[in-house]
């Protein structure tokens, strides 16, 4: 049974595309057949994050308009077996596709894949409506910042209104040092504010920038970030995986001050 997952956030720049690329890579490494659909028509980016930008011939709008077959538009990933990309059109706008067309397209993909992951555009307009129309469940990505969390709350409300159940939260770019100094909300803080179940915490790491520079997702390698993405993949498959301990050991002064707190 194929599962259709939309990766969404409301606010832009919190890591939807990076998350989509890494979860796709991770699930494919776990021997699943995965297709990533870039639904951000006019502002496509999933292709560059995956390092597949030079292989695009046809795109999602070509398929919807009947200019090509779905199989002609799918791009096979060059590094991981079982991973495919359906790129967005770059020179069209969001209105080029309707929610019904997106549903039909995704239903066609269900026949051949285990996971269909939709990379949703930022915002709550047409592109968002298209992406969620076809989804079985949602992953809401946020960073531990007030603006991103506020937008995530709005998205969670809209997902509920559209009867998308099983939404889960990914807290992205958690800066462990800042959390330790009380200058960033913890994942627990964000969960408490949003009242939605957590499926993963991804620590802030400069390696992500390096990985997008070269178009090589980190999921499944030995970095903390790579492991966090892999853990999310396992949880998506229904496995119970404990959360990574991101908190490093407390420093000397923190321990002294703990003594006084009694």
């Amino acid at each position: 049974m194929a599962e259709v997952i939309v990766v969404t956030s409301g606010k832009g720049g919190v890591g939807k595309t990076t998350t989509t690329a890494n979860l796709g890579t991770g699930l494919a490494k776990l021997d699943k057949k995965v297709v990533l659909v870039d639904t951000d028509i006019g502002l496509r980016n999933l292709d560059v994050v995956l390092g597949l930008e030079n292989r695009i011939v046809y795109n999602l709008v070509d398929v919807v308009d009947g200019n090509c077959k779905i199989t002609q538009a799918l791009i096979k990933d060059k590094k991981v077996d079982g991973l495919y990309l359906l790129p967005a059109a770059q020179t069209r706008d969001k209105d080029a596709v309707t929610p019904e067309q997106m549903k039909t397209l995704v239903d066609e993909l269900r026949k051949d894949f285990d996971y269909i992951i939709l990379d949703c555009p930022a915002g709550i307009e047409q592109g968002f409506k298209n992406a969620i129309a076809a989804a079985d469940r949602a992953l809401v990505v946020t960073t531990p910042e007030v603006s991103a969390v506020r937008d995530a709350d709005r998205i969670i409300g809209l997902l509920e209104a559209n009867e998308i159940k099983n939404s889960r939260l990914i807290v992205n770019r958690l800066n462990i040092d800042m959390v330790k100094h009380g200058n960033m909300m913890t994942a627990e803080d964000v969960v408490e504010v949003l009242s939605i179940d957590l499926i993963g915490v991804v620590p802030y790491d400069e390696k992500i920038v390096v990985s997008t520079n070269t178009g090589t997702p980190l999921a499944g390698d030995d970095t903390l970030v790579g492991q966090s993405y892999m853990n999310i993949c396992h949880r998506l498959m229904g496995e119970d995986v404990p959360f990574l301990n991101l908190e490093a050991k407390k420093g000397f002064f923190a321990r002294i001050s703990d003594l006084f707190k009694g």
Partner: peptide
């Protein structure tokens, strides 16, 4: 009060009116 506590409190307030 840490700035993360301030962030959390402000969020709670703003979400009450948003919701």
């Amino acid at each position: 009060k840490s700035t993360s506590d301030i962030a959390k409190d402000r969020l709670k307030m703003v979400l009450v009116s948003d919701r």
